[in-house]
Structures are given as C-alpha cells and as structure tokens.
Design a protein around this nucleic acid. Structure first.
Lengths: 154, 154, 154, 154
DNA sequence: TTTT
DNA sequence: TTTT
C-alpha cells in the first residue's frame, strides 16, 4: 500500500539521441532530455511557447526500448517519478542538485519517425559530451556510484 | 490546445511552515518543501521507506489557502507542473539549477490537524533561513527578478 | 481549493468522426468514442491487446478544435474527469447509466494524419446512427435536457 | 512498452463498507463505491458541491488492504484504469453497461478514522444487498463469469 | 525538514 | 451511499 504519491506525466520531444549505459550489475540504463512545450502568456500578455527541459532516466526493458526506438526528435509520453540526487562538487565544494524523472512507463508516439537521423542504433557516443554540458565533470552518474540492479527502486 | 504535457501529482507531508511572499505586482506566493514517502527495496532486498523532497510553489488564491491552512506536517495533495530555473552563481561562477513544482491545484488532507504547531498564521519568519540553506544567496527568487502578475503562466 | 480529485488521462485513437452539436445556449459540444489499447495477459498467459472504449465529450473551444482537427483514426491524449449520467429508460422502465469523460484538455498527436477520411469537416451525419447503438433512443443527451453554457462544470 | 494510456486518479470517500469476494482461483476481490466531491457552478452561477459516484474494484493484495482497513466514510486515493463491462440483460433483453475503476494502487488517507463504524472487520455481509440495487440480478459479476487469477490484467 |  |  502506497504511503505517498510521486507521479509525473510528460509528453514532449527528445532533445538528443539517448545515452545508453550499463550498471555494474549489467542492467541497461538510458538517459536523455525531453522538451515539453507550454503555451503561456508572456509579460506583454501574448501567448508564447515556452520549453521546459527534463532529465529522463529509464531502466531495464524500458531502457532497451529507448535504445532501439527513441531518437532525437522522437515524440514520447512518459510516466514516472521525480527524484533529486545531490552531491558535493569537488571543485567548488558546493552542494549540487540534479532532478530527474525515473520512468515507469514509456509510450512512443509519432513525432519524427524512427529510423532517420544521424545515429544508426538510436545511440551515439557524441551524446555524452553535450549531456555533460549540463552535468559537469564532478557529478556522479549511476555508473560512478556503483549502482547495481538491487538499487533500482521499482 | 495543449502542445505538450507536463503534469505532476504529489501526495505527502509539508516539511516546514510555508514561506509567504508577495511579488512586486502584489500577488501572494507561497513556497515550502513537501516530502513524499516511497516504499522501495534497498540493496539488501528489504523494503524501506525512502523520502523524496520537492520544492513547491503556489500562487494567488492557492498561496492564500497555503498561508491560512498549511503548516509543517500538513498532509496535502498537489497537482502542478515541473519547472527548472537556472542562474549563474556569482560566487563560484557556476551554472546552478533548481527544480520546482508550480501548483495548479491543492487539496488539504488529514495529516497533522491544522491549528496546532508553533506559528499562528501558518507562516513563520524562521522558515526563511532554512529555505536559504538549499537556495543560496546568489539565487534569484521570484521577487528578485521582478515577477509581476503577468508573468504567472496560468 | 479542491475537495476531491477526479482526473483521467487517456491516450488512444478516435473510433469514428466526432459528432458535433450545439447547446441551446449556443455552445459547441463534441462527442466521440476513443479506443485505448492495453497489452495484457489472457487466460493462457499470453500477451494480447485489449481495447477499451470510452465516451468522450468536449465543450467550447476544445469542441471547436475537435470539430476542425479530430477525425476517425486520430491519435489524441485527453485529460478530463469521469461523469456518469443516469436516466429512466421509457421503454423498459429501467434505470440506465452512461459514463463519459468530460475533457479539460486535449492534445493532438500523430496517428492517422488529419485531412484524409470520408468527411470534410471532421464531422459526418452518419456517426449519429452508430453512436446511438450504444446510447439508445430513450437516453437524454445534452440538447434534450436543455443544457446552457451556465451548466458547464468548468 | 505501452500502446495506450488509460489512467485514473480519484480522491474521495467510500460510500459503504466494501464488499469482499473471492474468485474461483482463490483471489480476493474488493468492490465499493467512492464519492468524489467537485465544486462547480450551478445554473444560477453559484458554486455548489456535486458528488460523483464511482464503482471501484480492487484485486489481490490491494483487496486485502481494503478488507482490513477501508470502511464506509474512509478517505482514500486510488490510481487505476477505466473498464466498461457489458452484458445482455436477460429480463429486458437490452444491452447494459457498467463502468468500473480497476485499482492499481491505493493510498489510505485520514477521513473518518478506521476502527469505528458498524462493521468490525471492515466488511459486512449486508453490503451485498445495496450493491445489488445498482447491479441488478442479471448482471454477471466476476464470480459468475468464472474469473481466475490468470484473468487479472496486471 | 515531514509523516506512519 | 460518502465527506466538509
């Protein structure tokens, strides 16, 4: 029986080809950024599109679906939960936070059809660099902290 | 017609008495942290409670409900959307991010009954300090950036 | 402040061209059936697709979007609430129930591209007949009961 | 990977003590009605509470939680999906429909505290009668149609 | 920092 | 049929 609720629905477009990794336990992990567009009024009272970017993380079978079918531009719907990780930045000595959406369920929609785009396998090494722009070197990722399959929270 | 979806449901308990502010446009803004409990397996395979903390922001009428009825310990359900603000930290020169839940709808549940607790108005000055622990001095808050009522996206 | 929650998310395909009507108050109402596909295990333990049909009702601007853009086959996402209407069937004398989803927000997805299909305006008279198969003659619809714009619950 | 979405969130109060049954496969099934309150404008433009009733069905562990903790008056939050069953009424010869919410997750909230009320075990035989008022004799229930554990869709 |  |  649930004690609380932490549920998120996002529908949007994938910003770059997903990054695929494996945990030390051999589990597949996929991460990518997702843009959700929101029509809202600006300061002048005009309707304008505003884009919100989300850090998405998928595990196991869902990560494999992402690896095989999700690319830059894909339109998807995800259901998941919010999780904020924190760590001490070794350079600045400051506490840092990164909020991510851990996905329970993923639905592929239309958007840019799969099969086109730069990378053949839905995954390209070059993603790593741009992903790191947002997640600087001192940030521990799942591999760094030695995540195993037992650590996955669902 | 919506172009995307960015929807969050959180049910949990409020960590401290909410902080209440006003924008330059005179709109009430309430912010507080909300703990959602999640039962999940730990590394040993045992079920353990894990708490996730969320930064909640309410505007206008909802902020007034918060001011009048929500206190440390209150059990509430919120529906809202995820927004990540970023700014350049003046001290370290680094880019920082803070993810918040902007509330559309709030439902008061049971939990610790309202009317008890330290603060009389559901709001105590002392919240400010601890809130600032997580949101260091160089972070712009809504007042700093001169938000007016026109900026509110719903 | 909300006292309860009654919220539905459906993603699926429209079964027929929507039926468009007007209330006595001149408000546009659109109704159609929406199929949501669910992969589930059958009695033999095999995964099989099961389709669930939902009665969708849209009002005002959303109904106009439906009239202009939604057709048989369209893939859409709706957010709304559940409502069950009841009436006494004049023929059988029995109490009847019809559960509908009243839409708050509608998002057009890819699916079968708009612009094809039999009807030009996203609405064809012939829908009425098949719609009526599920909603027999003795059922009051919104026009029959003299709904005006004031009756719309949001 | 999901092909569609059919998701419901309801927060409200239980109308009667739940009815508890077992399938031929020995699985526990709990059903009850849930009232969700909605503040909406009436024809005169005044805000009025409107109650919507939902037919809730829980299986397995969730049904056991319901049996042990949920009573008339309990405030709960459920997440589930919509399902409409249909059958031919043997008396009138008409097609009938009943829409139900199949629960995936249930959260007990405050409301009227458990442990009080008429029934000792959170379950009273007398529920059956009133449930049958809404679900006349000719309606197949889960036991009638010989549901086994394999039939449960999640 | 909450809650059971 | 619930609840505030």
């Amino acid at each position: 029986m649930a004690k609380g609720v932490n549920k998120v629905f996002l529908l949007g477009n994938v910003g770059k080809d997903p990054e695929i990794r494996s945990t030390t336990g051999g589990m597949t992990v996929a991460s990518f950024s997702l843009a959700t567009a929101d029509r809202q009024k600006d300061a002048q009272g005009n309707w304008a599109d505003k884009t919100e970017w989300h850090n998405i993380v998928c595990f196991q079978r869902t990560a494999e679906v992402v690896r095989d079918y999700v690319k830059k531009g894909s339109q998807i719907l995800v259901e998941g939960k919010i999780q904020t990780r924190s760590w001490d930045d070794k350079t600045s000595g400051e506490k840092k936070y990164k909020t991510e959406i851990l996905v329970n369920e993923l639905t592929l929609l239309g958007g840019k059809p799969a099969g086109e785009g730069a990378s053949s396998g839905g995954y390209s090494k070059s993603n790593t660099a741009s992903y790191d722009q947002r997640a600087p070197s001192s940030q521990p990722d799942y591999a760094d902290v030695g995540i195993t399959d037992d650590d996955i929270p669902f």
